[in-house]
Nucleic acid binder design. Structure first.
Lengths: 137, 137
DNA sequence: AATGCAAACGCAACATTATTGCATTTGCAT
DNA sequence: ATGCAAATGCAATAATGTTGCGTTTGCATT
């Protein structure tokens, strides 16, 4: 399915800003921070970028992941998520050297045995260390 | 061991600010945000609080955990951590209603089977939902 | 108990990240 | 081609975190 259709299918209008962001996010399995994208789209207003990302997240097109340093990052949902619940079901890896974040699509989150009374809705799992290219160097 | 000794043993000077923060953190198994503590210590300078928390973290007295919303939180290390590596080995629970964060001391982190080439150093696991008191209400 | 010094603190300024309101522009259904 | 809600750009503001510097304070030593 092409990008424009993915956007329109979620009830969002197709605009240059949105097409651009979707294209970048779709290029690899990385999670981009607002600052990363701001450099790639110098002509786009900062606020617009915030809104594009928030709209995508609410529409279930992208996931929001918080990095070790508190920076918010966004990654494309691999499989289209239901509108209600689109938490990541896989583990993310954050590289301490290049600060890139990777989606480990094949590493799924386990179920934790939390104390009775607590009601779990979802979970965020972040493994940190050095990525393939950085640990090779 | 009393609080003053814990602080002094890490090579830090014992001050009213530090004693106060340690006492609050030791009261329960919760992770406090800077904003929480700022309300409790209205006479303490914001910068001092940042520095107290950072110093504690570097000394291995407290853990730093990032909440779902990107807010940094601090919790007392239960067992004294080695100076070099003091990542949390347990799971944290973040309540979406009261926004408190709890240390689930008894729920330990699993080992993930990450792709070859990636080198893991540690991991952050956050389960979110509703805590005991909030899911009862 | 008095002294000296590095550590800790308070204050001011600044940097970064994120949000809100409003007027203007634009996608797109009609 | 037209109208309208949605999206955008701009300005202002809020929240969060950092840095520099002069002053104060814990504490080891005398």
């Amino acid at each position: 399915m092409d990008i424009a259709h993915q956007i329109r299918d979620k009830g969002l209008k197709v605009t240059p800003s949105r097409l651009g962001v979707m294209e970048v996010l779709g290029q690899n399995h990385q999670a981009y921070a607002h600052a990363d994208l701001e450099l790639l789209f110098k002509d786009m207003d900062r606020v617009t970028l915030y809104r594009v990302l928030n709209d995508f997240e609410e529409a279930g097109l992208v996931h929001k992941i918080i990095d070790m340093d508190g920076v918010t990052r966004f990654a494309l949902c691999k499989h289209s998520c239901p509108d209600t619940h689109h938490a990541d079901e896989h583990v993310h890896f954050s590289c301490q050297a290049c600060h890139k974040m990777f989606c480990l699509e094949n590493v799924s989150s386990p179920v934790f045995n939390i104390p009775s009374g607590f009601k779990a809705i979802g979970q965020n799992i972040l493994v940190y260390g050095f990525c393939k290219t950085c640990s090779a160097a």
